[in-house]
């Protein structure tokens, strides 16, 4: 039921990662991702993977939950690994294994194996850090953080605060609309709508009785919401203060410093060891 749905994947807690400033978390996550792509060999990537693992431990998010965030991209990882394994061959490669398959021979090379493992670890690291960000930051904090980070753009007349308000409203109304969709679907099924079987075209057509009421209701909600917001002095322009105060504290600066160190380490390790990619 709807009461069970939690938007985003925030995991309530008070770990050091939870307590960090949302802006710093956003920036550092972005930076970490860039550094992941800077890695050239197993040593630098290993350093980053170790850092990601330490962060995961610091967050105190249960391991099961973290593993669950890998699930959606599992297929992608398998697919790219297989491609890398099979299609990396050529003059400078060292064959490890030759598999006769019908009329062809599949050659698996050492380079292919390295690249497959390398990209897998890289993707997993990317997913891990970005999930850590969403696990330790509420969606509304993320919105606020993003709004503050982008606030300089307001000077270029980019309506940053309006975009942030739109995001806030979206977060607020997603559960409401899911619930509504559910209710309308049940109602139309009760009138004999067949939403589960039939060809694709048939199913798309079957959704008209769900989509029309959903849109009608969304527009009505929007109109009522506009009155409610206006009644509470929202104008959409001008400045607003905010209940949420973001403050950079010592741990935030320390985290930034650590990332700089890691970055330096990656550059050094890239230098001293031969590249895989």
């Amino acid at each position: 039921m709807i009461k069970e749905i939690t938007i985003g994947q925030y995991y309530a807690g008070s770990s050091p990662l939870h307590r960090m400033d949302a802006r710093m978390k956003l920036l550092l996550t972005l930076a970490f991702m860039v550094v992941i792509f800077l890695c050239k060999n197993f040593f630098s990537l290993g350093l980053l993977a170790a850092c990601a693992a330490v962060l995961a431990l610091l967050s105190r998010v249960p391991g099961g939950m973290l593993l669950r965030s890998f699930r959606p991209i599992l297929m992608l990882v398998v697919f790219t690994s297989v491609l890398n394994l099979l299609y990396t061959n050529g003059a400078d490669t060292h064959p490890l294994l030759e598999l006769p398959v019908w009329r062809w021979t599949l050659v698996i090379t050492r380079e292919g194996l390295f690249i497959a493992v390398f990209t897998t670890v890289r993707i997993l690291c990317l997913i891990l850090v970005s999930s850590l960000l969403t696990y330790t930051t509420t969606p509304s904090m993320l919105t606020t953080g993003l709004e503050r980070l982008l606030s300089p753009l307001a000077r270029l007349r980019v309506p940053v605060s309006v975009f942030a308000m739109m995001m806030t409203l979206a977060l607020r109304f997603v559960p409401t609309l899911i619930e509504e969709t559910d209710r309308i679907m049940s109602a139309q099924k009760s009138r004999g709508s067949n939403l589960e079987t039939g060809s694709l075209l048939k199913r798309i057509k079957a959704f008209v009785p769900v989509l029309v009421p959903l849109f009608v209701s969304a527009f009505r909600r929007a109109a009522e919401l506009a009155y409610a917001m206006e009644s509470r002095c929202y104008t959409g322009s001008g400045t607003r203060t905010s209940l949420k105060q973001l403050r950079l504290r010592l741990p935030d600066y320390l985290a930034a410093f650590c990332l700089l160190l890691v970055m330096a380490g990656v550059v050094a390790l890239n230098r001293f060891f031969t590249a895989v990619i």
């Binding site: 806030t168 919401l225 509470r232 002095c233 104008t235 905010s242 209940l243």
Partner: peptide
């Protein structure tokens, strides 16, 4: 206070919603 309770709550967290009016009035944090 309007009829439909769903269509007047603006934020995804209760205290953020209550703060909406004062924020618009530029009350200090």
């Amino acid at each position: 206070v309007f009829q439909n309770p769903d269509n007047q709550i603006i934020a995804a967290i209760i205290e953020d919603d209550v703060a909406f009016g004062p924020e618009n009035l530029n009350v200090p944090p």
